[in-house]
Design a binder for these strands. Structure first.
Length: 595
RNA sequence: UGGGAGAUCGUCUAACGGUAGGACAACGGACUCUGACUCCGUUUAUCUAGGUUCGAAUCCUAGUCUCCCAGCCA
């Protein structure tokens, strides 16, 4: 982009790339995008570079989706790029399994990275930069133990005290740090610390640790390093090395920003190519710049937890069936549950970006998914709680094939054949011997439309010894069949069905919210989050599917008419033994009205 | 007198000294061979108190409330 076009605030190349330009969707106007537009307009930046930097110590969850959509989304809108960077500075907690999972999840959400990087790619740079810090008198090797460091740090309201090792000579520090790197000292016996201000009101500035000794194999660098850099040091330098212009992170890093800037400025990578030249020679695209950290509020969802520790606990204590359990709000769990990338992106788009702490109602998320699925999911018929309905005015061996549109509003979905016969399964809930007020479904002597068939009248009930209705005997109004003059006749209700003889039995897993209170993390009532787990979050039933539903490929999503959106389980489903997961029910104003 | 941040409909979010707008939710209606979808309509908000100004969500002053920070985690 030329400086001239960058100086024009609105119809620059940047905003032309965004959806608002052709008047389709309003352009996102959050404060971060405003900053970016200003930076482009003022010529401060000519291209936008972002990064998504997860630590590979667990699977991604819905909260990460916000950061992913923001970082990759902005890169896309402003014709920039976004790196995927694994923040792997703490070996022992991190695992290559999670790296693969993260890559998978990001792609599934619909994004692609410019470069895949690891913080560990830069360990050599970090080490050399730390030596520069020492030489410049900005860092020292400390012999204090972890407990002592804590004691010296002071409290939120009292200043800390200088470590007795704070004034070691540059030569001594350099030598000690070299020996740390050589592995001469035991874990925890020494650290490298930044020399800043032990009296700072910002705890992060009280001589923060830069390196700690940890003799553990690293998932990427193996045994090469006995010392590992801390987040505050590694993260900002990684950003600088990658030429990240806007380093977007969540609110809790707000008071790390002075430290972020301190390291970036003290080390000044752009002015010291000797520190990173070898990266280029090693094949890494490297163009260091001064990054700017901007914080936004994280996504909180009601009826959910988004703590990695707790998610891991659910898995480890077998409270769920794994990281991809459909009850989990991990991206893998949501995927298996049948949530769509489009639905997730829609949610993030609707939330907007700000610095206010907020909690999004889970219902909003469900509605985003419904909205996406309504347009994209073919329709099928299925009965989950069967009640037999016999059409007495059809011959015993009556059998025909009906043609159904796969989507009510989109002919491009085509048609399918649905077998119809004398005996059907209907939903038990669609019949009431004593109907409540406003009931539009089947009742004794009442009429209802069988979806795609015609109008049926309930003539008789069959009950078992306990008085339970086991069978409905109905007559079909032949004149109301498709193509007949009475086909347009109106009745209040339409219900779904499957042919008993042709239906395929399926395992159907009915999922609901994992927690039964809006804020499971809130322990002010004296209850732990574990006590709020909803035991009804997973119910398994046997249902009956029309044959065309059973034949689905794994991960095929359908709307089972009048029931909800379902997905063929990507792990367990087979055409001969179908397994479907309920993603979300349809909106049900009748259930709401009926209580 | 520790530091940092934030308070706008029920929920998110916009406004950049000039009509408090949008989305979602809720409610009402229309439509309907899915009580879905869609369409139309309605209700509801500037944390408090002062001040500056012709005019304040926005600027100033003083409060109130909420969140984050004392890892050799990220």
């Amino acid at each position: 982009m030329s400086t001239d076009s960058a100086a024009v605030p609105t119809p620059s190349a940047a905003s032309a790339a965004s959806p608002g330009a052709d008047g389709q969707k309003p352009e996102p106007r959050d404060f971060i995008r405003q900053i970016i537009r200003d930076d482009l307009a003022s010529g401060r930046h000519h291209a936008i570079r972002t990064r998504f930097p997860p630590e590979p110590n667990g699977y991604l969850h819905i909260g990460h989706a916000k950061a992913i959509c923001l970082n990759f989304g902005i890169a896309g809108e402003f014709a920039g790029w976004c790196n995927l960077r694994l923040d792997d500075t703490n070996p022992g907690k991190e695992d290559p399994e999670f790296v693969e999972g993260i890559k998978d999840d990001v792609r599934w959400l619909g994004y692609d990275w410019h470069d895949l990087r690891h913080a560990s790619d830069y360990f050599e740079v970090f080490y050399d930069a730390a030596r520069k810090l020492i030489r410049d008198g900005h860092a020292y090797v400390d012999d204090l133990s972890a407990d002592e460091v804590r004691a010296y740090r002071g409290t939120l309201t009292e200043p800390g005290r200088n470590s007795p090792f704070r004034d070691r000579s540059v030569e001594e520090n350099l030598e000690l740090f070299r020996r740390m790197r050589e592995g001469e000292f035991a874990d925890g016996s020494k650290t490298l610390r930044a020399k800043i201000d032990m009296a700072s009101g910002n705890m992060n500035m009280r001589d923060p640790t830069i390196y700690r000794i940890r003799k553990i194999a690293h998932q990427n660098t193996g045994e090469a390093w006995p010392i590992y850099p801390m987040y505050d040091y590694a993260h900002c330098l990684s950003d600088a090395l990658e030429g990240i212009t806007h380093s977007l992170c969540t609110l809790e890093f707000e008071d790390h920003r002075p430290l972020y800037d301190w390291f970036v400025d003290k080390i000044d990578l752009p002015a010291h190519p000797e520190l990173w030249q070898h990266l280029r020679e090693g094949g890494f695209r490297t163009e260091p710049a001064k990054p700017r950290q901007i914080e936004f509020s994280r996504l909180n969802l009601s009826y959910s937890i988004t703590s990695k520790r707790k998610l891991a606990q659910l898995v480890n204590e077998r409270l769920v069936d794994g990281w991809d359990d459909p009850r989990m709000n991990t991206l893998r769990g949501l995927r298996r549950r049948g949530f769509t990338p489009g639905g997730i992106r829609l949610l993030i788009e609707r939330l907007g970006i700000s610095k206010q702490n907020s909690v999004i109602d889970y219902a909003i998320f469900e509605n985003c998914v419904r909205e996406d699925l309504d347009g994209s999911a073919p329709r099928r018929l299925a009965v989950l709680d069967p009640l037999k309905l016999v059409i007495t005015n059809l011959a015993d061996d009556h059998q025909e094939t009906l043609s159904f549109p796969n989507h009510p509003k989109d002919e491009s979905f085509g048609q399918r054949e649905v077998p119809f016969a004398r005996e059907l399964w209907i939903e038990r809930e669609d019949f009431a011997e004593v109907p409540p007020k406003g009931f539009h479904r089947l009742k004794p002597d009442g009429e209802v439309r069988l979806r795609g068939v015609g109008i049926v009248k309930c003539e008789a009930l069959v009950k078992d010894a306990a008085g339970q209705v086991t069978e409905l005997h109905c007559t079909l109004d032949l004149d109301s069949r498709a193509g007949m003059p009475g086909a347009e006749r109106k009745v209040k209700g339409t219900i779904h069905w499957v042919s008993a003889r042709h239906a395929v039995a399926a395992e159907v897993r009915l999922y609901d919210r994992l927690f039964n209170v809006p804020a499971p993390d809130d322990d002010s009532d004296g209850k732990s989050w574990l006590e709020h787990i909803n035991p009804e979050a997973k119910r398994v039933v046997r249902g009956w599917l029309e044959p065309a539903a059973a034949a689905a490929a794994p991960e095929q999503r359908y709307q089972f008419e009048r029931l909800g959106y379902f997905v063929a389980d990507r792990v367990d489903h087979r055409a001969e033994a179908p397994v479907f997961n309920r993603t979300v029910t349809l909106r049900d104003t009748w259930a709401k009205q009926a209580g």
